[in-house]
C-alpha cells in the first residue's frame, strides 16, 4: 500500500495511512460480504443455470453445459412480454409522474406544518402488504363496481371492463409505485428556495414560464430518480399482471415466474432473468445519459 503512495506522504505518516486503509477495509467487509453472498453468488448461479441443458429422458432436471441457445430461444418465445413490460412500465411511469408532481409540489411549497403528516400519508399505504393492496384493486375495478359502471355509462371503455385488461395492470403499477415517484420529487422540490420562484416572477416570467425555466430544471434530479425508482420495479413486476390482467396481459415477470415454477424450465427462466437485468441496465444507462444529470444522488 505504501509503495503506491507518493514518497513524501509515505515517509511523513506511514503508520496512519496504513491503519486508515486497514480500517477502511474492515468497515467495508460486511457490505462486501453481503454483496458477495446475496448478489455475486446468486447471479453466477443464475448465469450458470441459464446455460444448462436438460438431462435426456428426465423432465425438470438439467445438467451443466454451455448452451447459449437458451437466450435466443427465450427471447423469441417471450419477446411479446418484453415489449409489453416496457410499454406498461413506461405508461405507468409517465402517469405516476403526472400524478406525483403536483402532489409533491403542493407538499413541498404549501404543506407548511402539515408536511410531515402528508408525507406519512403518502407512505402509509405501503404499511399494508403489496399483495393485499393489489388484491384490493380487484374489488375497486370489479366489473360491477362503481368505477367500471360509471365509465361504462359513459361508454369510454374499449372492452366494457377494466379488470383483466391492460388498463387494470397499468393502474395497479401506477398505484403501487407512486410513493417511489413522490418521495424523490418531494425531496428535490423541498430543497428549492421558494425565493427563486419569486425572483423569476419579479423578472417578468409568467408563472408557466417560471415552471418551465426554473422549477422543472431544478427538479430534474428528482424526476430522474423518481422515474427510475418507478420504472425499474414496474418493468420486472408480475403481481399486477397476474392479479389484475388477463392471460393476454402477462409481463416478463410472469414469464419468468411460470418458467421457474410451473414449467420447471430453469435455463429459460434464468436466461429471461439475465436478459431482463441487462435490458434494464441499458435502458437506465441511456436514460441517464439523455437526462444529462450527474446529480442523481
Amino acid at each position: 500500500m505504501a509503495a503506491v503512495l507518493p514518497a513524501s506522504t509515505s515517509t511523513q505518516q506511514p503508520p496512519t495511512v496504513k491503519r486508515r486503509s486497514r480500517t477502511a477495509y474492515f468497515l467495508l467487509a460486511p457490505g462486501m460480504g453481503w454483496l458477495a453472498v446475496f448478489f455475486a453468488v446468486p447471479f453466477i448461479t443464475l448465469f450458470v443455470t441459464s446455460l444448462q441443458v436438460p438431462v435426456p429422458g428426465q423432465s425438470g432436471r438439467y445438467m451443466p453445459a454451455f448452451d447459449l441457445m437458451n437466450y435466443p430461444e427465450a427471447l423469441s418465445a417471450y419477446s411479446e412480454q418484453f415489449i409489453r413490460s416496457f410499454v406498461y412500465a413506461g405508461i405507468a411511469t409517465v402517469l405516476a409522474l403526472i400524478i406525483a408532481y403536483p402532489l409533491a409540489y403542493f407538499i413541498a411549497f404549501r404543506g407548511g406544518q402539515w408536511k410531515g403528516l402528508l408525507l406519512v400519508l403518502v407512505i402509509a399505504p405501503t404499511f399494508a402488504s403489496f399483495l393485499l393492496r393489489t388484491y384490493a384493486w380487484r374489488t375497486i375495478l370489479a366489473d360491477e363496481g362503481p368505477i367500471t359502471s360509471f365509465l361504462n355509462a359513459l361508454s369510454v371503455l374499449p372492452q366494457d371492463r377494466i379488470l383483466n385488461t391492460g388498463i387494470a395492470v397499468i393502474a395497479g403499477l401506477t398505484y403501487n409505485f407512486l410513493p417511489f415517484m413522490i418521495l424523490p420529487l418531494y425531496a428535490a422540490l423541498d430543497r428549492m428556495d421558494p425565493r427563486l420562484i419569486e425572483a423569476s416572477g419579479d423578472l417578468y416570467a409568467h408563472p408557466a414560464t417560471t415552471f418551465r425555466k426554473v422549477v422543472w430544471p431544478l427538479s430534474l434530479p428528482g424526476v430522474v430518480a423518481g422515474t427510475l425508482l418507478t420504472f425499474i420495479p414496474a418493468f420486472g413486476d408480475y403481481i399486477n399482471a397476474q392479479l389484475l390482467g388477463s392471460t393476454g396481459d402477462r409481463m416478463i415477470g410472469n414469464a419468468i415466474q411460470i418458467n421457474f415454477i410451473q414449467f420447471r424450465d430453469y435455463p429459460i427462466a434464468a436466461a429471461l432473468s439475465i436478459m431482463l437485468m441487462a435490458l434494464i441496465l441499458v435502458i437506465v444507462f441511456v436514460y441517464i445519459r439523455r437526462a444529462g444529470t450527474e446529480e442523481l444522488v
Binding site: D193, R195, L196, E198, A199, S200, D202, L203, P217
Partner: peptide, 19 residues
Amino acid sequence: RAYKRPVNTVFQSYALFPH
C-alpha cells in the same frame, strides 16, 4: 401581478438561479 410590474428586486439571499 409581480411579473407585470416595472419594479425589480435584489433579494436578501440573492436568489440567483443555480442551474
